[in-house]
Simulated scan of single mutants.
Amino acid sequence: MTDDSIGIDISKDFLEAHRLSDGGTARFPNAPTGFRALSAWLGADIPARVVFEATGPYHRRFERALSRRLPLAKVNPLQARRFAQACGSRVKTDVVDARMLASFGKAFALKPDQPIDEKQYEIRELFSARGALIKDRTRLINRLQTQTLALVRRQTKARIEQLTRQLKALQQDINVRLQDCPSRARANAILRSIPGIGEVAAATILIEMPEVGTLDKKKAASLTGLAPMTQQSGKWRGKASIQGGRKQLRDALYMPALVAVKHNPDMCKKYQRMIKQGKPQKVALTAIMRKLIELANTLVKADREWVQNHA
């Protein structure tokens, strides 16, 4: 392995590559043939890192195909853009972006991500399909409220019932796959032991934050987007706020937090204490969401289930 950085700008159709050591550039199709051509272009000397931006559906095939063959480092597009601006680059093209990504990786000595777990990808795809079905069902349920014709209502109800059956089948398949892996099955049992975290919330944590159990408290909260960001400058003191993070995971913690403040004595005390201090309910509930993900991470790391503290 050489201490070299490769930047890959990923679009729908192409991969724009830049090698930092010699300034070499190349373009490849964003397809299996392009992935093979990229590997051949890199040659036998594996670089220290291959840096690319998270671009949703466009980067997934690339990441899935090359995760175990190259030291991939996925970065936040906003951070990469801020780095380019700090370097004085105002131009934004695929070639420039690839060069900036290579420089970004070198400047911060980015470490490669953990190789992709193929089963994790399969579970994530099932979970994504489940989310789409939920949106469809919610839309139909809302539409049913305004429909008056008997035929239209019957068809809408039939479609809702069909979606409900499909959702049940998807959830069962997700549960089976979670149990197939001993480590995931154990983590799932630990998460389900926490008051408020049910079947769906536990699955969401395992799918959206596979790092659970390997992080420190601050990192777990930061990845979820629940770590408050301090805002101050000189004598000015602004309100701390949360931002960024993994939205789907954060959304999945909302209902568990509502349950936790009623059925988890420790969470209830903290919530009530914050309310008495004059904190808005939304702020107090966000703090409980953060405590939940920190607790989940701690218990999985310690390999123990939740037990009520009677002290």
Rank of each mutant, 00 (worst) to 15 (best):
R154W: 01
M255T: 03
K219M: 08
K217I: 11
Q120S: 04
A158V: 01
R19M: 13
L226C: 03
A107L: 07
L151W: 14
A202N: 11
M209W: 13
A129L: 15
E211D: 15
A252W: 13
A132R: 11
P71H: 05
A202V: 04
G7N: 02
A65V: 04
G34C: 03
A98G: 04
A132V: 03
T156N: 03
G234Y: 12
A132S: 02
A221S: 01
S233F: 05
A132F: 04
H310W: 06
G278D: 13
T2Q: 13
H59F: 13
A302F: 05
R137E: 07
P112V: 10
T298Q: 09
A189S: 07
D113I: 08
L249Y: 11
L223F: 09
G213P: 06
L149F: 12
H263N: 03
L20W: 10
R159C: 00
M1N: 05
L149C: 14
A65P: 01
G213N: 02
N175G: 08
H310A: 08
R273W: 00
R237E: 13
K282Q: 01
K239G: 10
M100H: 07
S233I: 08
N142C: 02
V176K: 05
P57R: 15
K291M: 04
P256V: 02
Y271H: 08
K235F: 01
A107C: 10
L66G: 00
R124N: 05
N264R: 11
A102G: 02
R177D: 13
Y254V: 12
G238Y: 03
W306R: 12
M274P: 12
A296F: 00
A86M: 10
I174Y: 06
A169H: 06
S183P: 04
K106H: 09
A189R: 13
R177W: 11
D4K: 08
Q179C: 07
F83H: 03
S241D: 15
A257T: 09
S183F: 00
I10H: 13
R186I: 11
A252Q: 10
E63N: 05
P112G: 07
M229Q: 13
Y254Q: 06
H263E: 02
E125S: 06
K135R: 09
L206R: 06
V259G: 00
V212Y: 12
A202H: 01
A129T: 12
F28H: 14
L249K: 13
L299W: 08
H59K: 15
G105M: 02
P29C: 11
Q277N: 14
V261N: 08
L191S: 11
I160Y: 02
Q232G: 09
S103N: 06
A260I: 04
E208G: 06
D117V: 00
F28L: 12
D173W: 00
R68G: 00
D216G: 08
G105N: 05
Q308T: 15
R192T: 09
A150C: 12
F28E: 15
K276P: 01
T230D: 15
A54E: 12
C87L: 14
G213Q: 04
A40R: 07
F14G: 08
R246C: 10
F62Q: 06
R137M: 12
